[in-house]
Design a protein around this nucleic acid. Structure first.
Lengths: 404, 404
DNA sequence: AAGACTTTTTTAAATTTTTAAAAAGTTTTT
DNA sequence: AAAAACTTTTTAAAAATTTAAAAAAGTCTT
């Protein structure tokens, strides 16, 4: 990675980001994105061209005036490694600067709760090695997973303990790559905000329909994390009357009623009671099984998803009352069958919201085809270009005298 | 108001704001507040001195180095009119630039729901006239009241209809003063954020314990209003099981259980049932009566407030789960007996929150002695110095050829 | 096809920020 | 107790950035 003069590092990084998020822009547009004047923007773009990050991209059609020169990122010189985990699996892939997967996506079944950090390192390291991509071409690793995560400190307080040390520091030293850690639901929100259906939205709530029910919050156009990074504990608000006992120690959490973990449990119970369903042909019932059969029209599967959806809708009604978002986005693996969730959720919103508020909020389904978390992990790396963590990594490189 | 060069208007306005919020600052501090270099800051300050807004304030003690020159606002040349309404009353007062009341506070009993705009104008206009303050010395009117308010458009959709026209436009034309409109709970939040216990906080929820239960939200150090300005509809989230019917059409809202309107109703019902209480000596029971007797130790009054508080606490628990705020601030008239609210609310938080979240959030009582709304109304005016609405007012002055 | 109108790019002037130096104190050391 | 060392603010000069104006390169209208 060529050296960027520190005085303008931040502006150059912003220009790179604007092109990463937009593929192709004119100088005028880049200027608006980075908040600098056009002469200065053009100077910055020329520097980035000289440094090999950006290329000119021909003249665009004009709306009546001089044709603007378009600029875009050179996408095949720097790559991003995105590692997306949930409670029971992990996906790894390299992306170019246009979100194209440039290696075969790898998937491992595992249990995040019992996974050890060195196993995690080995899985990632093996993937990097097998990809044969040189490390100096890797912009960084975006690691996204469930848990109470302190992004700034790089610690996951729920999983992957490194004796209270920073998981990010550990992995950076081992992998010799810049590493950025984020909660899975927040990563999904970032994906939807930057490349998905929440693009350009100011206030949107991104619901992660996965093994659990997660929430990523976009407020004032930015990811919102709260005072200590724990905002969005949506699935543990007291909601359902006389509900089951939750892992959090309380009763009636959304988690126990609407997550896929809960739904799978309900499915098994129903089958045990002799309920007829195509689910009975599965050896092990998982989220995919229920969604697949629901699409085919299996009555039990549809009923289970509808019940979960109505409960999620009650939680969403609370969100709408408090935050008055422009939209609610259904994302995560559950969004594969997004349409099945829509009407029960809308029903619950209509029943539980003041009409004016319900009217002002749109209910949307992700258009990223369940890839929001992986894409968000990539965006996480680019978001952090030029930030302190990057500086820290550069210091590390020097310390180890490694030319990455 | 002397003409401010438009090119630097915004910077000058920011400098004025920084001094309004801090009484006395050094050039270095002003520089940090307005985000400009020190040489530029000193230039701006000298302009403001020349324009009669700012004065030098002597040398301060130094922590080891050259003594810094202090700057402060000239507080007696420009004044702010703050009009604070709730459902049943209205307070008017002029403040100087140090939040000192410079006229006697006027109070009117009225019903906001039935009040007409011309009556409102007359009440305000009479107060301005009786104050004998020249209009060119009045920076503006901060009008704060309950209702669904669109701050940008200057419309209150709930009260004081001007046939769908802008209430702000109407009052500006009638009063020939810049007018700024804001929801009461949001104004309280602004007061607490700028001058109260939430000063310098990034993420705080300000609960307005009044005739209703309101919420003003501070997120990322700024007032949060949501997509269409309706965020904070805290008191209509479905909360209490088998609750009473609310004016919003639903059952179990916090409003029906914890607001003073509800509490007064409960008090009357209890007295009718023969419950012994010092409240029975009152001709008409209002919020003040209950608070006064609760302080004196009246069992019924204390019980009523405790019940309300526990219910509010359940709602706050939901807020904490979703938003992970640094603090919850109890404000509004109810905060006069803030200590009575504290333990039942904390109890509810402990019962209904994940411990880690409960632990990260502080429960505080306002230190503004129920003046948060009036002070917030003043801050509202200063916040808007140099903003579009001000420009609009200037245009209006020109149009009418009035030298205000 | 010429002139009017748009929009982008370049150039030059003005403004603002950054960096460095000077001024004015306080604290430590001898 | 005076000098040296250290802090912090203020001033001055240099560098960077923005603003404004002009030039360039189009499109659209008559």
């Amino acid at each position: 990675m060529p050296e960027i003069k520190s005085s303008i590092l931040n502006t150059n990084a912003k220009a790179i980001k604007s092109l990463y998020y937009n593929e192709s822009l004119t100088s005028t547009e880049v200027s608006a994105h980075i908040g600098k004047s056009i002469p200065h923007t053009i100077k910055v773009l020329n520097e980035l061209i000289a440094d090999g990050y950006v290329k000119e991209n021909g003249y665009a059609i004009s709306s009546g005036g001089r044709k603007p020169l378009h600029y875009s990122l050179i996408t095949d010189t720097h790559f991003i490694l995105s590692v997306a985990m949930n409670q029971y699996s992990m996906q790894l892939v390299f992306m170019d600067m246009n979100n194209n997967f440039i290696t075969a996506l790898a998937q491992h079944q595992l249990n995040t709760a019992t996974l050890k950090v060195d196993s995690l390192f080995n899985l990632i390291n093996d993937y990097v090695k097998s990809s044969a991509i040189e490390k100096n071409k890797i912009l960084g690793l975006g690691l996204t997973m469930p848990g109470f995560i302190d992004t700034a400190k790089g610690i996951n307080y729920t999983f992957l303990d490194v004796q209270g040390q920073s998981l990010v520091d550990y992995l950076q030293h081992q992998l010799l790559l810049p590493v950025f850690l984020e909660n899975d639901s927040t990563a999904i929100a970032l994906g939807e905000l930057k490349f998905g259906i929440a693009m350009h939205q100011k206030d949107a709530m991104i619901v992660n329909l996965g093994w659990g029910i997660g929430l990523g919050m976009i407020m004032d156009g930015k990811i919102f994390r709260g005072h200590s990074g724990l905002a969005g504990e949506f699935s543990h608000i007291p909601l359902v009357k006389n509900g089951k006992l939750c892992t959090c120690g309380k009763h009636g959490c959304l988690e126990t009623e609407a997550s896929f973990i809960a739904t799978i449990g309900k499915a098994k119970a129903e089958l045990n009671l002799g309920q007829i369903s195509s689910l009975s042909s599965y050896e092990e019932i998982d989220a995919n099984a229920i969604m697949t059969e629901a699409i085919k029209g299996d009555v039990l599967s549809v009923k289970l998803i509808s019940e979960a959806a109505y409960n999620v809708g009650q939680g969403i009604a609370i969100l709408i009352h408090i935050l008055n978002p422009a939209s609610i986005v259904l994302s995560g693996i559950g969004s594969m069958v997004g349409k099945l969730w829509l009407s029960p959720i809308q029903q619950a919103i209509n029943e539980h919201c003041i009409p004016r508020l319900a009217h002002d909020t749109e209910l949307l389904v992700s258009n990223l085809n369940s890839k929001a978390q992986i894409i968000g992990g990539g965006a996480l790396v680019v978001e952090n270009i030029g930030k302190p963590l990057q500086a820290k990594m550069n210091a590390l490189k020097k310390e180890l005298s490694v030319d990455l």
